[in-house]
Design a protein around this nucleic acid. Structure first.
Length: 210
DNA sequence: TGAACTTCACTCTTACATCA
DNA sequence: GTGATGTAAGAGTGAAGTTC
């Protein structure tokens, strides 16, 4: 720990001891048993059911009205300047320290809630993307099947054509001649007579891209 | 450079709700 | 009714940043 840190810590300890004496006289007495005797406070406070605040009541929840006004102020601005803190504190009859703590906790809760919302949003987006991926993969499989069927049909037609005109000059017709345009770029030039296409090019059951 | 102050993350404690 | 458990809220602590 640096010298600064030590100094700051000591300052904080002093402030905290002042507050402690105000809010938790019992504990304060335990750690400051005698005048002049310096007893460092323990790292963690230990509270018990006898903890009381300066008004004699056990420290507890802020009233609905207090919370409502604090919420209202938090809605206006999440940061809390000194002047504003003091004003709110006096309006609500609270210690400025309480107002500061409330804002601090409120900011933490707000941040936590925001993170939760962001996570939820991202999860929804992720889920729908995964769903879309599945849909597209299914579509690809379907299209592959259709392509395979189309290839088989082409082979059948080519074989039939070979059988009919085995002696004609056009017997040199082969799959090599059609594979390039068909599989290279889904070209269908010269096959208008092989496939019957409806006016709108729609083929029931798929092959929409034809 | 150091003191004073603020903010933040982490933690503890307490009150309260729910359930077996 | 009661003890166990979970949760929200108030508050303490230390580190780091900012301002003067």
């Amino acid at each position: 720990m640096t010298t600064i840190m030590r100094a700051q810590t000591q300052t904080q300890v002093d402030d905290q001891m002042a507050l402690l004496s105000q809010y938790y006289p019992g504990i304060y007495d335990q750690i400051m048993p005698e005048q002049g005797e310096v007893v460092k406070p323990k790292r963690r406070r230990k509270k018990n059911k006898t903890d009381v605040n300066s008004t004699g009541f056990r420290k507890r929840k802020l009233s609905d009205e207090q919370v409502s006004l604090l919420e209202q102020n938090f809605g206006d601005e999440h940061k809390l300047e000194s002047e504003r803190k003091d004003r709110i504190a006096s309006e609500l009859g609270l210690d400025p320290r309480q107002v500061a703590v409330w804002f601090q906790n409120r900011r933490a809760r707000w941040k936590s809630k925001k993170l939760e919302e962001e996570y939820s949003k991202l999860k929804t987006e992720h889920d729908s993307t995964v769903l879309e991926k599945c849909r597209l993969e299914t579509e690809v499989l379907k299209l592959k099947e259709q392509l395979s069927e189309a290839e088989k049909e082409i082979n059948r037609l080519v074989e039939r054509s070979d059988g009919i005109s085995s002696t004609s000059p056009s017997s040199s017709f082969s799959m090599e001649a059609i594979e390039a345009p068909l599989f290279g770029g889904f070209g269908m030039q010269g096959f208008e007579d092989v496939f019957y296409l409806q006016e709108n090019n729609y083929i029931p059951g798929g092959l929409d891209w034809f």
